[in-house]
């Protein structure tokens, strides 16, 4: 039993052990996340769903090293996360592109910040843009692009320095429903092609089921893991899985968590 656990931990890309977060404010201590254990394997696509304020974003920011956990530790690869590190690329809810930079220059920003060799990474950035269906838009400015295109640029920027992990905090939350479905299919393809470990946070249960290998359901604040579901739908998934019985069953089961919490 112990031996199995250890091999699993050895292969884990992200190992979250007894991680909890409490915010200190002037009104006292506000617990945001109860101690959580979670192990994410290399190449796995994990989606976290939960009600607003359940600490989903806190979890993601701790994995990125943007804030320290109050308790426990997070390992990425074999290093304990204490500060921002090069193993992750992040996509936020809004694309956060710099309007004074062209699309290509936006994607190249992490390369510039980290001082990586331009001659190696510029072709990579161009290849990423092409893969995201943005070939030919390199010299455009962000405001000349639609919301979905901007978010795809943000994904390319998160991937340009070839991190092992792609962290996404409601990346399609600001998009309309139809664009969102297309972006989900697109993201699935990008993740499969780049073989990244992905952690996505969302409010949308169908989005979670469509994209995930595993879904982590968090409870109300202070967040704790309420359930973990494995999604066995075959890949690559087309948008028509949205009508499959297995898909409907899973979304209904997950939705029940939140309805129960409302009562």
């Amino acid at each position: 039993m112990l031996a199995i656990d250890e091999t699993a931990a050895a292969r884990a890309m992200i190992q979250i052990s007894r991680v909890a977060k409490t915010y200190r404010t002037t009104d006292g201590e506000i617990p945001s996340l109860r101690p959580i254990d979670l192990s994410i394997a290399d190449g796995e696509f994990v989606v976290v769903v939960g009600p607003s304020g359940c600490g989903k974003t806190t979890l993601l920011r701790m994995i990125a090293g943007l804030m320290p956990p109050s308790e426990g530790e997070i390992r990425v690869g074999d290093r304990i996360v204490t500060s921002p590190h090069s193993d992750v690329g992040i996509v936020f809810q809004s694309a956060l592109l710099l309007p004074w930079r062209t699309v290509l220059a936006n994607v190249m920003m992490p390369v510039e910040v980290k001082g990586l060799p331009r001659e190696i990474y510029q072709p990579r950035a161009e290849a990423l843009l092409k893969m995201a269906g943005l070939g030919g838009f390199e010299t455009k400015h962000p405001w000349q692009l639609s919301g979905g295109m901007q978010q795809r640029v943000a994904i390319c920027r998160a991937l340009v320095h070839d991190p092992k992990i792609l962290l996404m905090d409601e990346p399609f939350g600001a998009l309309d429903a139809m664009t969102r479905e297309r972006m989900n299919a697109e993201l699935q393809r990008i993740q499969r092609e780049t073989k990244k470990t992905a952690l996505l946070i969302t409010h949308s249960i169908p989005e979670a089921v469509f994209l995930a290998d595993r879904i982590v359901v968090l409870s109300e604040r202070p967040g704790a893991i309420a359930a973990i579901y494995t999604v066995d739908l075959p890949r690559p998934r087309q948008l028509d899985v949205l009508g499959m019985p297995e898909f409907v069953r899973l979304t209904t089961t997950i939705r029940a968590h939140f309805n129960a919490q409302l009562d």
Binding site: R61, A64, G65, L66, P84, H85, S86, V88, I90, F92, Q93, S94, L96, M109, P110, V113, K114
Partner: peptide
């Protein structure tokens, strides 16, 4: 935007950068 600053921090940008 605070998120923009976090994004830059996540890229390991220095204060000057």
């Amino acid at each position: 935007e605070p998120d923009l600053l976090d994004l830059a921090r996540a890229m390991e940008a220095s204060r000057l950068q």
